Simulated assay, not measured.
Amino acid sequence: MANVTSSNDWLRSGMGGHNVEASNQANAILYHTLDISLQLGEALGDHSLDNVWRSAMHGIKAAVNGQLWDPTHNLFFDNDANQTAAAVHPQDGNSWAIMAGLVDAKRAADISAALQNRWVRPYGAPAPEAGATVSPFASGFELQAHFLAGFPERSIDLIEFMWADFMLDDPRMTNSSLIEGYSTNGDLHYAPYSNDDRISHAHGWATSPTSSLTFYAAGLQIMSAAGKKWKMQPQLGGLKRVESGYQTPLGQFSALWKTDDSSGAVTGTFKTPSATSGTLILSCKPATVVVRGPNGIVKPTSSTDGLRFEDLPGGHYSVRLK
C-alpha cells in the first residue's frame, strides 16, 4: 500500500499512514487511477506499463483487504496506525473501496449496509473522519457506492431525505443551492471550521446527485474514449421516472425510463450515437419486456439475475412490456 505522509486533505482529520481513504496519495484512489491508466493506455495503444500497473493493483487490493478490514463493523479502518475500538471507519474511504473496485460483491454489500445503518435522519450520512459532520462531498461518494453495490434504493432514499428534504427545504438553507457541510445534529456548524460564517452555502462539491442520477439511475455510462463503448444500466431505485442525457464528440447519449406500476419492470427508450456499440443491462425477468433497436427486436445474450444484451450497435432503442 501507498504510505501517506501528508496530513492534509478535504478538511478531514487523521490523515497519514497506509490509508484506505480517498486522498491523492491514498490507496483507493491510487488503485482507481491505475485502473483508469490501463484504460487510457488501451485507448492510445500503449501497453508498455500494463504489467507494472496490474501488479501494483493486485498488491494494493490484497493489502487493503488483508490489513484494513474490520469484520466487527463490516467496514474498513481508516489506516493501519489506529485499529482500536475508537478507530475511525471513514465514509469516504469505505465508499471509495466500492467505487474503485477494491472489494468483491459480498464485501461491497456489507459496506453498503453498514454505511446505511449509520445514517442520522433527517439530516444525512455522517462523515466521522471529519468529526461530528455531514459532508455532502463525502456523501456523494456514498451515493455512488450504494448504486455500484446493487442497492439503488438506498441512494435514492439518501438523496430524498438529505438533499431534497433537508439541504433544499430546511428554512435555514438558501432553498436553491447546496451547503458545504453541517453537523450530524442538524446545526449549521461544520466541524473543520471554527467560524460558522465560513461555510459555503453554494458549494459545487455538494452536487453529486446530478452525476449519480445520470450515470446510475438513468444508467448512461461511457466505457471507452468519448463513448465508443457504452453501458446502459438503469437503476431507478423506487423512482417512477428518470430522464437524462449528455453529449460527447461522438454524439448524443440520452435515456428516458419509467417504472411500471404493476410489474415493477423498467421500460422506456434510449439513444446512443451511430458510431458506437454497447451493452444494455435490465434487472427484470426474460418474459417481462421486449427490446427493439435499429435492427429490430433484440434477444438477450444472458438472463442470469436479469437481462443482458451485448454488442448492440448505436442507435435508438425502446424497452416495452410484453
Results as ranks from 00 to 15, higher is better:
98 I>G: 03
200 S>K: 11
206 A>W: 02
80 D>H: 13
253 F>S: 07
200 S>I: 09
70 D>E: 04
88 V>R: 00
9 D>S: 14
47 H>I: 07
32 H>D: 05
115 L>M: 08
237 G>W: 05
217 A>V: 02
303 S>W: 04
238 G>E: 02
103 V>T: 10
30 L>K: 13
88 V>Q: 01
188 L>M: 13
191 A>P: 15
278 G>K: 08
213 L>A: 04
211 S>G: 11
179 I>D: 04
218 A>F: 02
181 G>A: 08
318 S>G: 14
250 L>K: 09
248 T>S: 06
155 S>W: 03
316 H>E: 12
289 V>Y: 06
13 S>D: 10
15 M>N: 13
296 G>T: 07
122 P>I: 11
243 E>D: 09
308 R>A: 14
68 L>G: 06
64 V>M: 12
89 H>D: 01
45 G>E: 04
309 F>V: 09
143 L>F: 08
194 S>K: 09
263 S>V: 07
180 E>A: 05
261 D>R: 14
150 G>F: 10
57 M>K: 11
49 L>E: 15
13 S>H: 11
172 R>K: 14
209 P>T: 10
179 I>V: 15
152 P>H: 08
61 K>A: 13
303 S>K: 12
77 F>H: 03
2 A>K: 13
44 L>F: 14
303 S>I: 11
215 F>S: 06
89 H>W: 10
295 N>C: 03
241 R>H: 15
118 R>I: 07
27 N>Q: 11
226 A>I: 08
171 P>F: 01
239 L>D: 02
294 P>F: 08
66 G>W: 05
240 K>L: 12
87 A>K: 02
96 W>Q: 11
278 G>F: 05
74 N>P: 04
257 W>E: 02
153 E>G: 14
27 N>L: 04
192 P>C: 13
75 L>W: 02
